[in-house]
Amino acid sequence: MKIGILTFWNTPDNYGQMLQCFALQTYLREQGHDTFLVRTGREWRPLSGFIPQLKDKIRSANRLRQYPLFLTGKIFSNLYYLFTHFHLKQYIIERGFDSFRKDYLNCSDKIYSLEELMQNPPQADCFIVGSDQIWNTRDGIYFLSWANDSVKKIAYAASFGGLKGEQEFYNLIRLWLQRFDWISVREQSGVDICKASGRNDVQLVCDPTLLLHSEDYKKLVDPNTVCLPKRKYIFVYLLGTRTHIRMKDVYAYAERKNMDVIYVGSQGVVDKFSRIEPIIGEWINYIANAEMIITNSFHGTVFSILFEKRFMNFLVYGAAIRMNDRIKTILCHLGLENRIFNGELNAIENAIDYERVNKILEADRETSGACLLKNV
Score class of each variant (00 low, 15 high):
Arg231Gln: 15
Asp192Thr: 14
Asp207Tyr: 01
Thr209Lys: 04
Gly198Asn: 10
Pro208Tyr: 03
Leu204Gly: 09
Cys194Gly: 06
Gly190Phe: 01
Arg231Val: 07
Tyr237Ser: 06
Gln167Asp: 15
Val226Trp: 06
Leu220Val: 00
Cys227Trp: 07
Ile234Gln: 08
Trp176Val: 00
Ile183Met: 00
Gly190Pro: 04
Ile183Ser: 00
Tyr233Val: 06
Ile183Pro: 00
Gln167Ser: 13
Lys195Gly: 05
Leu220Ser: 03
Leu228Tyr: 07
Trp176Leu: 13
Ala196Gly: 02
Val205Gly: 00
Asp216Tyr: 07
Val185Thr: 11
Val226Asp: 03
Asp181Cys: 03
Gln167Cys: 09
Arg231Cys: 10
Ile193Gln: 06
Asp181Tyr: 05
Val185Asp: 05
Ser184Ala: 11
Glu187Trp: 06
Asp207Glu: 05
Ser197Met: 06
Tyr170Gln: 06
Thr241Tyr: 01
Lys232Leu: 10
Leu204Val: 10
Val202Phe: 09
Val202Ser: 07
Tyr217Asn: 03
His213Phe: 11
Gly165Ile: 00
Asp222His: 04
Thr241Pro: 00
Leu220Trp: 01
Glu215Ile: 11
Pro223His: 08
Phe235Asn: 01
Glu187Asp: 11
Gln203Ile: 07
Arg199Glu: 09
Glu166Tyr: 10
Ser214Val: 02
Trp176Asn: 13
Ile173Tyr: 05
Val185Ile: 11
Leu212Ala: 07
Asp201Glu: 14
Asn224Gln: 14
Pro223Asn: 09
Lys232Glu: 15
Lys218Glu: 14
Thr225Asp: 13
Asn224Lys: 14
Phe235Glu: 01
Lys218Asp: 12
Asp181Leu: 04
Tyr217Gly: 02
Gln167Lys: 15
Lys230Trp: 03
Gln188His: 12
Thr225Gln: 12
Thr241Leu: 01
Cys206Glu: 03
Pro223Ala: 07
Gln203Leu: 09
Glu215Pro: 01
Gln203Ala: 11
Asp181Pro: 04
Ser184Glu: 08
Gln203His: 12
Leu239Ile: 09
Leu220Thr: 02
Ser214Gln: 12
Ser189Pro: 02
Ser184Ile: 06
Glu168Pro: 02
